[in-house]
């Protein structure tokens, strides 16, 4: 089940047999085609989202709260399943993944949440190492890779501390270390700065930008206008169940964005 893969090359091995599709490396990392998600029939959350994200991109996903940002990310790491349309991850339709394949998809996607989702009675090391342990890597490899990840998020040498005693900013760094320790193709961040004060929020944003500079695709959902203003990047606005694109960042959207997120 686990493979000792320490290379930087992305190899999508969703299937338990670790089948490697070489063509996948040349396809966009994510393609959403006419994606629909309906929880309540009278208020569909996503109604026809089309979106293509290339390898190595940094994309902001924004929109008022309740617009469906979290839902969009959940569909990508398959915590939810599309009602209609397709989501192609490296060319493979994840809607068609079997239950057994979902864990293998997740090993290629790092996820960071607003509420951290750490195990409070585990140490920093244990919380990060778990992502490699589930892949069955040998302890020696796990130790060195966790150490590297902790260094990248600025927590080197703090592996033995219990996460419950860390500050909010530090806890978020632990979850980021957990998300990147597997060197995933994509990191999804769902309002990762939502629980942090503005200065810490900028630090965390900077961390994601560094991760992106290392070649990892980052999809960053936020409704914090300040972050969007600080970092002029590709911006996807979810509005009324659809995606509105603005490659030129915040300025390129103007009125649409005001309409979209000034409510907050």
């Amino acid at each position: 089940m686990g493979r000792s893969r320490v290379s930087n090359n992305f190899r999508p091995h969703f299937r338990p047999d670790g089948h490697f599709d070489s063509a996948a490396a040349h396809k966009p990392i994510l393609v959403l085609e006419n994606v629909m998600k309906v929880f309540r029939a009278d208020a569909p959350v996503l109604r026809g989202v089309d979106l293509t994200i290339e390898r190595g991109e940094f994309v902001f996903v924004t929109g008022p709260s309740g617009a469906g940002k979290s839902t969009l990310l959940k569909l990508i790491y398959k915590a939810e399943t599309v009602d209609e349309g397709r989501i192609l991850f490296c060319g493979r339709d994840i809607a068609r993944l079997t239950e057994d394949s979902v864990p293998h998809l997740r090993r290629n996607i790092g996820v960071v949440f607003q509420d951290f989702r750490l195990v409070p009675y585990w140490t920093v090391f244990e919380n990060v190492a778990v992502a490699l342990q589930v892949m069955g890597l040998p302890p020696r490899v796990i130790r060195s890779r966790v150490a590297v990840a902790l260094e990248r998020v600025g927590l080197d040498g703090r592996g033995d501390e219990k996460v419950s005693v860390l500050s909010g900013g530090e806890q978020q760094r632990v979850t980021i270390a957990r998300a990147i320790v597997t060197e995933p193709a994509v990191v999804l961040a769902d309002e990762p700065t939502g629980n942090l004060d503005p200065v810490l929020a900028l630090d965390i944003l900077g961390l994601f930008e560094e991760i992106n500079e290392g070649g990892t695709t980052v999809i960053f959902a936020t409704h914090d206008r300040t972050l969007l203003e600080v970092s002029p990047r590709r911006l996807v606005v979810i509005d009324d169940g659809r995606c509105i694109e603005a490659r030129a960042g915040l300025a390129g959207l103007g009125g649409v964005l005001d309409h979209g997120i000034s409510i907050n």
Binding site: M1, P103, L105, R106, R107, V111, R117, V119, V130, V134
Partner: peptide
């Protein structure tokens, strides 16, 4: 929470 984390990081 432990189970949630395990599922999140791709535990079978």
């Amino acid at each position: 929470r432990e189970i949630e984390v395990l599922r999140l990081v791709g535990a079978t």
